[in-house]
Design a protein around this nucleic acid. Sequence first.
DNA 1: CTTCATCACTTGCATATCACAAGTGAATAC
DNA 2: GTATTCACTTGTGATATGCAAGTGATGAAG
Lengths: 140, 140
Amino acid sequence: MTRSKSKRQTGCPIAFALDTFGDKWSLIIIRDMLMRGKETYGEFLAADEKIATNILADRLQHLQDEGLIEKKRDPQNRRRYLYRLTPKGLDLTPIVLEMVRWSAAYDPNTKASPAVVTRIQSDREGLLKDLIQKNKPERD
Amino acid sequence: MTRSKSKRQTGCPIAFALDTFGDKWSLIIIRDMLMRGKETYGEFLAADEKIATNILADRLQHLQDEGLIEKKRDPQNRRRYLYRLTPKGLDLTPIVLEMVRWSAAYDPNTKASPAVVTRIQSDREGLLKDLIQKNKPERD
DNA sequence: CTTCATCACTTGCATATCACAAGTGAATAC
DNA sequence: GTATTCACTTGTGATATGCAAGTGATGAAG
């Protein structure tokens, strides 16, 4: 395991956030969990963005160390693990939504769903509730 | 200049955002401009996080290429340049605020101003307006 | 008009991180 | 037992980062 992610420790909230999930891949994984219902290693590997397997393993470990996700054996198939967002990880939803809004506004090739983009503006609270509900840790 | 920043081009808004400003330093620079009124190279260099000068030059160029900031000579002192947020860069404010909110909630050593954190919850719209007003491009 | 200081970078180089390919080991399936 | 799936690990070259030192264009002082 490549020991990475040194913390800047300045107390600045932006630096803290960047040190926790501010790399090229962590939010891609979070997005897959939050918006696409993915929960296994193989599903994350299959993402359009082609994450390398060692980087994926490293990021999952890091996100777990940071308490954003948790890892459990799948009771249905004991050779796989299920990764789930913790409440702390789920609480990144507003950040993810604001990023979607921004990119939808400025990326001419965006594939962001217009329905979601519209709802971010018109019913932010409701959308947040729905996403958080769908990813509630107690849900199975 | 180290040519970096390859784009993933999948159309995913999260990937687009990460490719545009999702590195260890870009949002630190944006924060300095947005929340701390910094606008010169020397001011960015002096940040608590100790950004290396070559990385700073590279990121400023990148942010300029992406249209998030603009660079002008300082009319008061022609040997310095002023960096300012464009409307596209200013529109990152909601993302920055959500990151502040998240970090303030989960970093036990946060130095986030309680006044700001409270206002993010209680008067999000007003706070956004104020920050955007303060950084309006036409202001001098 | 020469010298000196400031400001915004560039360049070089050691170190760290990433990406790609291939390999390992545990849990089921047959 | 043999094969297959799944979740990783390991090795190696490419890329990016961090640090120190150097450069060129103002502008200020004498």
